[in-house]
């Protein structure tokens, strides 16, 4: 009898865990076409078992319990909101994509890695070369983008391009700082820095570009419509694949600490021909 009871208990506890057993818990911040595309790339290249939870579908997600019960090997966090939730279970390694705050958190969380939203500085510099610009204006928050500027400055020095930078600590300063770039730059470089670029300040960049008749180089396709001359957009499907490769490496036993944060591998340059034509600007060589 005791034997029978213990068998039933074993089955009751084991069966569901067997049925639910998976390697990767995918936390998606919300249902969004961009995220779906990333996951599409992710799925295409990996055969790992996974469970997808869209956070915005629930009022609250008890990630601690899910992780305790499901025991996923890895969490793939898509978006900043998903990353924040994933960080509640510090012991589980987290790979994150489409997250802006990743560089700030990397230092605090050793078992966190992922792919940032910044385009590789060299790629960007190459674009400015192609556009034949000498001085490039940049506005950034050192707390958020200081590390990138460091890399970018190095890349620029190598090519002879001068980065004219202005530091800000809060969005309101953007407009005022922008005005100080008056007639000092040949192009304006928008960084995915959430202090430097907000809904309120975006306009100021394009207005500045328009006033100074200089191209604005940005990071998302949306900005083409607002007046950006060229954008270097991340290929999201490729981003998914890149993440999938990263996940596979960890699942195969690579310690997460050894995998550094990566730049997105595939960048799609796009331009607004009307704006380019207005500016009399052309993009040459391997810009595209």
């Amino acid at each position: 009898m005791r034997y029978l009871v213990s068998l039933i208990l074993a089955l009751a506890t084991l069966l569901p865990s067997l049925a639910q057993a998976y390697d990767v818990l995918v936390l998606q911040s919300r249902r969004d076409q961009a995220y779906d595309e990333v996951l599409k790339g992710f799925r295409a290249d990996s055969a790992v078992s996974r469970r997808v939870i869209v956070l915005s579908d629930y009022a609250e997600v008890d990630i601690v319990r899910i992780v305790r019960e499901d025991r996923p090997t890895l969490i793939l966090a898509v978006g900043d909101a998903a990353l924040t939730v994933a960080r509640k279970v510090p012991q589980t390694p987290v790979v994150t994509v489409m997250s802006l705050g990743i560089h700030g958190r990397k230092a605090l969380h050793p078992n966190l890695t992922g792919i940032g939203m910044f385009v590789h500085p060299e790629r960007s510099i190459r674009m400015f070369q192609a556009m034949k610009t000498r001085r490039v204006g940049v506005i950034y928050n050192p707390a958020r983008s200081g590390w990138y500027l460091h890399l970018a400055r190095k890349a620029a020095e190598a090519t002879g391009i001068e980065l004219v930078t202005r530091e800000i600590s809060e969005p309101r300063e953007t407009i005022e700082r922008l005005s100080t770039l008056d007639r000092k730059v040949d192009a304006l470089w928008m960084l995915p820095d959430s202090t430097a670029v907000t809904r309120e300040t975006t306009e100021a960049y394009f207005r500045f570009g328009q006033d100074q008749a200089i191209p604005v180089v940005s990071f998302a396709g949306n900005y083409l419509g607002l007046g950006a001359a060229v954008v270097l957009e991340i290929d999201r499907i490729s981003l998914g694949r890149q993440a999938s490769a990263m996940v596979s490496a960890i699942l195969n036993g690579d310690p997460i600490g050894s995998i550094p944060l990566a730049f997105p591998k595939n960048i799609i340059p796009r331009s607004n021909p009307v704006v380019l034509k207005r500016l009399g600007q052309s993009v040459e060589g391997d810009g595209f």
Partner: peptide, 18 residues
């Protein structure tokens, strides 16, 4: 109000819905 046609960094990456 803030311009409804412009985007924050976050929204510019994800479809621009805000």
């Amino acid at each position: 109000f803030s311009n409804p046609l412009t985007y924050s960094v976050d929204s510019s990456f994800t479809g621009g819905h805000e």
